[in-house]
Design a protein around this nucleic acid. Structure first.
Length: 906
RNA sequence: GCGGAAGUGGCGGAACGGCAGACGCGCUAGCCUCAGGAGCUAGUUGGAGCAAUCCAGUGGGGGUUCAAAUCCCCCCUUCCGCACCA
């Protein structure tokens, strides 16, 4: 580089040298050294640690914390960089920025590893955390590390237990029997992900079976409506995530209607009298409650279907002529159902129980069948089947030749009108499935009711409320809202999780561990076999305790909590991470929360985010927080792919950030992953793209270093009216860039275009240097005394200061060094984000495109404040425009903002 | 099947109804250097032309508009989520 400088003989004509670019740096760009230097500086000055400061506005930016798998790859790292850019930018915008990080440190992988290698989960987890923390620090991420948390530490999980007890007190934590995967060979419970292809155990290959266990649940359904309504307030969440949550909650309004069941071989008392009072009509305790959203079709309910798990099924079986055969068929369905969960769709099957139920609206007896497609866990586990107006029921009716009765006329199905015009067709005369001219498919539209007794001619959906009211009046049913959302089963038969803080006493039953005894610490288990019951059950001196109530012999709960519990409130803990008495101080959460900007993978769109919203509401009701929604703005970042695939160890396509750091430094990596695409999009990793970003930094380095000494030190105000055109042009670019970058980061989260804008500014500075600034002496050269120089320096300085500050969120190490070179000893931590001046950004002249019949044919130059008439005349006077309008009639001339002139001819 | 998102050069991607392809990667030609992860200049949607310029062009087809990648309707493709939710 020094050689190049010597090659330019005369300073005054150095820029005129043909074919040579003389902008060069005195100092080599050595990013690895800069990384180290500034990271040390930030750490030793506690640059990113924050305290509550009521006088300053806060900003809480958070990235989803990490599972300590051992190595962060660039896919993870992308998310952290996005958050870091927000944090660094907001600090310079004057906010008190909380930007913490932590570890989702409990979980199955560490336990699985322990089973395979014998390394205790605690050891491997803490080692992994240490390694990954180093990786993140080497990226220059501006975390408040003093607030670091790890969920596997007792000081954290103590408060999982604390919250559990609060839930228990409020009836939000309860026990019920539930099905788990069980490996008969290992004698152990398996998580879903431990059941691999073909429904076998991941370790021994044995076919997994279902087993019912008493387990703990959180009553999230108690908040279902609130969680649903809250979605409307999440205006800064991706629509996609909101929709996914709405569907997951799955609210549907309908009615629960009772169908009395006939005693074996008997008709239901009073059957056959439409509209009669059916209360108490059936066999004692033998009502089938169904849930339907389409009570308007109830006159078409020609049979009733039970799920194989329905409570009446066993009774029907024992009362049937051949109980064993009945039970066998049911057992087959129940088993099949579980398998279907793994493989997908199954053929609809069912069989007749031989029993009848009374349709309380028609007064008819209809057969009761058991069907494999009816879900036990939704609604009442039983449905009224309306084959004419439900596709599934139609398929079923056709298969088993059950009656199909049309009760709704809609535009969808004109042929029905002709086929079924007229009044009520008795069941016996219903046309069978596939009868010519009747129906080939169910029609599910709303329409006008037919064959529906007193309701004929009424229109759904309006009639639905009326019919529900009628059912309620007659005591046969009620309006009801159903949710697809189910209560959250949190019990895990695992070691590496939070112990559930309850004690089972023979005398007192389930007794919560007193708050003063928290945390219930995990005992040290030294061997992990992967066999047997919950690992904790094997630690006798831990399990056997005295009952807190009666002092008698008792046993601890040996299940641990789902790790989603840990992650459902960690963002609150960051507000006050070292509190020993409470999960966090309410005052601290009131200041820092909610999270202003939350980013993470879309794979957490449902569970983690929904559970967090649930916990926030529970803690609100407990009195710890004063808001409903924990995350104000959400960004779901796209994954980083390599060779078209998600990075994973097994695929061998992992890009290790450390390799990239060694080669190009942290800043090039940071810049590249932000530049390559908008944050929410998936990106394909390319090494050449990274090189491009490195070259850009090099280019910034050269130009700033080149001029730093000349323009550095105390500045003068940038010029006003006495600017040259070139100077004005650069100022315009500078301010336009400030506007674009600010909006792109803060509002649009288009970090890629923010980088583009910075690149354009750098290009403009180069142009300015080459074309205009040659009056300024380069570093180490004697100054040339010219009056314009002061202005030129000021303009260049303004541009470079703005550039370096705006670059700093993306490339903090490089920017920090350049900032010092530019003569700002106090460092970027004290720097202000530049302010956009619209007056400066405004051009005096504009190039106005002229469209003729919609196509741009010419451009004219006009004053920025030219009137519409002036623009119109300028446009029509243009030679090219004249060429297009000659001999034609000008029908219309539109002058649009922009500006732009649009001419319509002929 | 239902729901959501998206289809733009060789590639990643720009363009909140107004100049399509910013910015970068790659590539081509030239220059510079002992060398360099370099650097510089010019070019890079397709087609026609020495050129000015013209024609076509944002998955396909219609429509609204002076003006559409952008808004509306239909169709095709891809990705993602839910998957018998009564």
């Amino acid at each position: 580089m020094a050689g190049q400088r010597e090659a330019s003989e005369q300073p005054s004509c150095r820029w005129a040298r043909e074919g040579t670019m003389s902008i060069s740096a005195m100092t080599d760009y050595k990013p690895q050294q800069l990384d180290k230097k500034w990271q040390q500086q930030w750490t030793s000055s506690n640059a990113f640690e924050v305290e509550v400061d009521a006088k300053r506005p806060k900003y809480y930016t958070l990235e989803m914390f990490a599972y300590p798998s051992g190595h962060a790859h660039v896919g993870h790292v992308r998310n952290y960089i996005i958050g870091d850019i927000m944090a660094r930018m907001k600090r310079m915008r004057g906010f008190n920025v909380l930007h913490p990080f932590g570890w989702d440190a409990f979980g199955l992988p560490a336990e699985n590893a322990a089973i395979k290698t014998g390394t205790h989960p605690e050891t491997s987890t803490l080692d992994n955390i240490a390694h990954m923390k180093g990786q993140l620090q080497r990226l220059g991420l501006s975390y408040a590390w003093q607030r670091e948390i790890a969920t596997c530490l007792p000081e954290y999980y103590k408060f999982n237990q604390w919250i559990f007890l609060k839930m228990f007190e409020r009836g939000l934590a309860y026990r019920k029997r539930s099905t788990v995967n069980w490996c008969p060979s290992c004698q152990t419970v398996l998580a879903n992900e431990q059941v691999i292809e073909g429904g076998v155990c991941w370790r021994c290959g044995t076919v997994v079976v279902s087993r019912d266990l008493e387990q703990w649940f959180f009553r999230i359904t108690a908040y279902a409506d609130e969680l649903l309504k809250g979605l409307d307030t999440l205006t800064e969440w991706p629509e996609k995530v909101v929709v996914m949550q709405r569907n997951w909650i799955g609210r549907s309004e309908g009615a629960r209607i009772r169908f009395p069941v006939a005693k074996s071989n008997e008709a239901v008392r009073g059957a056959g009298a439409p509209g009669m009072d059916v209360r108490g009509a059936g066999a004692p305790g033998m009502d089938i409650e169904i849930f339907t959203t389409r009570i308007d079709t109830i006159y078409g309910a020609t049979f009733v279907l039970l799920s194989p798990e329905h409570p009446l099924v066993d009774r029907f079986a024992s009362e049937s002529p051949d109980p064993q055969a009945f039970k066998d068929r049911v057992a087959k369905f129940r088993a099949l159902d579980r398998e279907a969960r793994l493989t997908g769709a199954i053929e609809k099957e069912g069989f007749d129980t031989g029993r009848k139920a009374l349709n309380p609206f028609t007064g008819e007896e209809v057969p009761i069948w058991i069907a494999n497609f009816v879900l036990a866990e939704y609604g009442t586990g039983a449905i009224m089947a309306v084959p004419a107006h439900d596709e599934r029921d139609f398929e079923f009716a056709r298969k088993y030749n059950l009656p199909i009765r049309i009760v709704v006329q809609s535009d969808e199905t004109p042929e029905i009108q002709t086929a079924e015009r007229g009044e009520g067709v008795p069941a016996k005369q219903d046309r069978g499935a596939g009868a010519p001219g009747v129906m080939n498919a169910a029609t599910t539209n709303y329409g006008r009711m037919v064959n529906s007794g007193p309701w004929n001619g009424k229109e759904a959906p309006a009639v639905i409320a009326e019919m529900i009211a009628d059912a309620e009046k007659r005591g046969i049913g009620t309006g009801e809202v159903q949710y697809r959302l189910k209560d959250w089963g949190i019990s895990r038969q695992r070691y590496w999780g939070t112990p559930i803080p309850v004690i089972h006493c023979e005398k007192d039953g389930v007794v919560p561990v007193p708050y003063k005894d928290l945390p219930v610490e995990l005992p040290k288990v030294t061997t992990f076999t992967g066999r047997g019951d919950s690992p904790l059950a094997q630690v006798a001196d831990w399990v056997n305790v005295k009952c807190p109530k009666c002092g008698g012999p008792a046993r601890r709960e040996t299940d641990t909590m789902d790790t989603f519990v840990d992650s459902s409130w960690y963002f609150l803990r960051f507000a006050d991470p070292h509190n020993k008495e409470m999960p966090f101080n309410p005052a601290a959460s009131a200041y820092w929360l909610p999270v202003d900007f939350y980013s993470g993978g879309v794979e957490h769109a449902i569970l983690h985010l929904l559970y967090s919203r649930f916990f926030t509401r529970v803690l609100r009701d407990v009195g710890l927080v004063n808001f409903d929604e924990p995350f104000k703005r959400l960004l779901t970042q796209g994954m980083v792919l390599k060779n078209g695939d998600v990075m994973s160890k097994s695929k061998g396509n992992v890009v290790d950030p450390d390799d990239m750091l060694q080669k190009y430094g942290a800043d090039a990596l940071r810049l590249y992953v932000m530049f390559v695409a908008p944050p929410e999009k998936e990106v394909e990793w390319t090494d050449t793209g990274l090189e491009g970003s490195f070259r850009f930094l090099l280019r910034v380095w050269r130009i700033v270093d080149h001029w730093a000494e000349t323009i550095g030190g105390e500045g003068v105000p940038a010029c006003g009216d006495d600017c040259t055109d070139a100077e004005r042009k650069l100022r315009r670019k500078t301010h336009d860039t400030i506007r674009r970058v600010t909006v792109d980061i803060e509002e649009r989260m288009h970090l890629n275009t923010a980088v583009s804008a910075l690149m354009e500014l750098v290009n403009a500075i180069y142009d300015f240097s080459e074309g205009t600034a040659h009056g300024i002496p380069a570093r180490g050269e004697p100054p040339v005394g010219r009056i314009e120089r002061t202005q030129t320096i000021a303009v260049l300085r303004e541009a470079m200061d703005a550039l370096v500050v705006m670059l700093s969120p993306f490339a903090p190490h490089t920017a920090e060094e350049l900032w010092h070179l530019l003569g700002h000893p106090e460092g970027l931590m004290k720097a202000q984000w530049p302010t956009f001046d619209p007056a400066v950004a405004k051009a005096e002249e504009v190039v106005v495109p002229v469209q003729i019949n919609g196509k741009v044919r010419a451009r004219v130059t006009a004053r920025v404040d030219a009137s519409e008439d002036e623009l119109r005349e300028l446009a029509l006077a243009d030679a090219t425009v004249k060429g297009h309008t000659a001999g034609k009639t000008i029908r219309k001339v539109v002058v649009a903002k922009g500006p732009l002139v649009s001419v319509v001819v002929q």
